[in-house]
Design a protein around this nucleic acid. Structure first.
Lengths: 136, 136
DNA sequence: TGAACATATGAACAACTGCTCACATGATAA
DNA sequence: TTATCATGTGAGCAGTTGTTCATATGTTCA
C-alpha cells in the first residue's frame, strides 16, 4: 500500500478503505487532529469502567457516604466477593480510594470528575425516551 | 431470608451479605436513595457505548466534522463494515445522527452532552499519571 | 499462639463484544 | 433493466468481562 494507482485499488479487499474516498482533504485534516492512541486508550478505558451496572451503583452509593465492602454488598444485594472484585477495578481506574480501620476497609470516591460525569450522563439519559431511529 | 437470627446466619453462603453488617442505618438510608434499576441500566449503557476505542475515535472525528462512513473508515484505518457496525451502536445510543445524500450517508454528533462527557473524561485522564495504589 | 472475621484474589465458566466475511439493501446512472 | 457503488447487517469467532467458588491475606481479640 504505497503509491498504488486508483485503478489497481479495486483489487484490494474491504479491510481498509481503498480510496481516499470523497473528501481526501477532510480525511487528512481530521487525521492530523485525531487523539493520540494512549489518550484514546485511557479515555475509553475510563468510560468502560463506568459502563457497568454494578460499578455505577457502587459509585452512586459512595457519592452519598463512605462505605465498607460489607455495607456495599448489602446495599447492592450482591456477594462481598463480587463487590470486592469491582472495587479493585474502580481502584485501578482511580475512581475510588480506601482507608483501613482495623479489619474494615472504607471506600470513598477519589475523583472530583466522577460526579460531573454522572450528571452529564444522567442528562443524556433523561432526554433519551422519544421516538426510535431518528433520521434528523 | 426474613427474621432469621444472627447466629443462624453463619450457615448462609456468601452470595449476599448475611448480616446488615455494621451500619444498618446507613445501609437502609442509602438503599432508599439508590438509583432505580432502569436509570442504572441506561446510565451504564451510555458509558458502555463510550467505553470503546473505536467509538471514542468515531465520536471525536465527528466532533470535528460531519463525515461519511468511508471517510470515517479512512481516518480510523478500519474496514467500512466495522465502522458501520459501530455507527449502529452509536445511533441506537442516540449519540450520532445521520443524513442521506444520494448513495452517501453523513454522520454527525446528536447530543449536546457527548462533548461535555468527553471533556470531563479527558480531565480525569489528565490527572491520571501519578503513583500506583494510592491508599489515601 | 489460634479462632474469628473483613476483605482480597485466582481459576473457571457463561455471557457478551468487536471484528471479519459474505451477502443484502438502496441509490445512481447508463 | 443491469452495473456499480456506499452502506447495512447476520453469522461466526476470538478475546474480554463479571460472577461464583474456594482459598489467601491481614487484623483483632482471647
Amino acid at each position: 500500500m504505497s503509491g498504488t494507482a486508483v485503478s489497481e485499488m479495486k483489487r484490494f479487499r474491504d479491510d481498509t478503505c481503498q480510496v481516499f474516498c470523497f473528501n481526501r482533504e477532510t480525511v487528512q485534516a481530521i487525521s492530523r487532529q485525531m487523539l493520540e492512541a494512549p489518550v484514546v486508550e485511557r479515555l475509553s478505558g475510563t468510560f468502560k469502567v463506568l459502563g457497568d451496572r454494578t460499578r455505577v451503583m457502587v459509585l452512586y452509593a459512595l457519592s452519598k457516604h463512605e462505605l465498607c465492602v460489607c455495607d456495599l454488598a448489602a446495599i447492592l444485594k450482591m456477594s462481598r466477593s463480587a463487590v470486592s472484585h469491582q472495587l479493585r477495578v474502580l481502584r485501578d481506574a482511580r475512581l475510588v480510594k480506601y482507608r483501613r480501620d482495623g479489619k474494615m476497609v472504607y471506600y470513598s470516591l477519589d475523583d472530583r470528575h466522577v460526579l460531573s460525569l454522572f450528571e452529564q450522563g444522567l442528562e443524556h439519559v433523561a432526554h433519551e425516551q422519544p421516538d426510535r431511529d431518528r433520521q434528523d
